[in-house]
Amino acid sequence: MKKYTIINKKTLNSTVTEMVIYAPLVAAKAKAGQFIILRVDSEGERIPLTVAATDKNAGTVKIIFQIVGATTIKLNTLNIGDSLQDFVGPLGKPTNLDGIKRACVIGGGVGSAIAMPIAKALHEKGAIVDTIIGFRNKELVILENEFKNCSDNLKIMTDDGSYGEKGLVTEALKKNIENGAVYDEIFAIGPLIMMKFVVETAKAYNIKTTVSMNPIMIDGTGMCGGCRLMVGGKIKFACVDGPDFNGYEVDFDAAMERNSTYKEFESTARDASCNLFKKGVE
């Protein structure tokens, strides 16, 4: 089979798509917490995406992405049988899951797709897994069944209360802890602001909290330094030192600023792509 062929494609909600890509070398190695970098076509930019699952026998890697910018819009136009230009990995360090007896895995929005393999790996190692996933509303809920299969206790939170419980993931975390859950570690993956507040909440109970950072990146092998973060007062590169970091040490405010570097460019690119689609429809 041709390298990087799309074997399967599934719409998880109106803005999130799942794809299964044929990439045997990556499938053979990837572990929970690692990521890949892909390019859609020969002129495309390099974008990092977390590995959602692998099938070593089939040689496939599952990715889940939110359609947010020009590249993900273009990626979403591809179908089963098409192939990607480039697909490299696995990059970053795998999530360290050693010695955990009970953990709380928290996912926010499309970050749930990154949280899922961690919950699954913990479950397979025999740990008790409490999962909390949060979304804006019912329509945006993804991977509910997958989480059910690997969680001992699953809570779904929505901002508007249209599904699960109304409220923030931090409220559910607090409730779990107050109700007596004793966690060796919390894993939080989602928007920076969510991870920041999960860390704040966890600090009050002195529970170790690992976050997965997703900064702007180009090569993903440590060469460009674009993905640098301040962690414990030192410069760290998310691609080689992470993407997982001790949440207590991450400077989230600085990370939020850096992530907005190309905001203007991204919205222009998105508008341009949207206009192209409109033309396509006409």
Partner: peptide
Amino acid sequence: AGLPRFMGIDGENLKQVYSANE
């Protein structure tokens, strides 16, 4: 060579600070 060096001074993580490599 790999990893770009920084000076370790204040402000190196501001938005328009690039390593030459990047």
